[in-house]
Amino acid sequence: MRSEKAGLSGFGFEKEQRLSEEPEFLEAALAADPESSSPPADSHDVPGGDQEATPWRALHPRYVELERLVSWTVTGLFLLLPATVTLTLAWSHGWLPMIWRGLATGAGVGAALLLAWTSQVYPQKAFERTRYRLSDFGLEIRKGVYWRKVLSLPRARVQHTDVREGPLQRRYEMATLVIHTAGTENASVELEGLPRDVAFEIRDQLLAGTADDAV
């Protein structure tokens, strides 16, 4: 366990220290540039990064693919398609004054670009940001693209676990691991997009650790 006694002296914020010693707190598991951070397809382990014994692991390599599929389907079917049809009709039938039509079209194009971004780019970012590992004290999860989170879930605090598999997830051999604790804010912690066998493996390991802890 690495501990920085110097850093513990306060809320202590020191620019020098930040730049030199802790260059990449949440990024520790990730390589410096996003391109190289996507792991090779045959391995879930991330090369380099943290010095500690257990390496951070990435989600299922096809997580991005599945997320994009779902996201494009939903936005395409329920938002883009109806919007396109409405706008086309509006232009061909001359609904509303020209200026409103123009504005609506502009807004539609803007929204479409935003949705395209969330469907195409965001899953990749989420994938790069999400890492997990089973360490000495339990399961650690890093997630969040803009609002980032690192959850440390002590083994002894696992109340029970679920492994959830939707029909699409099953096709991609993925699963969602849900870990329930006695807490409030994090009463249940979800880890989505794990390879199916890894989800079961983590579950078994977590449960094995809790067997001797009578609640």
Binding site: S3, G7, F11, G12, R18, F137, G138, P154, A156
Partner: peptide
């Protein structure tokens, strides 16, 4: 909290929590 402090404090707390078995 500065990152370094937050990280080491979080790790220490998690380790101590794991070592101290939870009892209702």
């Amino acid at each position: 909290l500065s990152r370094g402090v937050a990280k080491s404090l979080g790790e220490e707390l998690a380790t101590q929590a794991e070592q101290a078995a939870f009892r209702w």
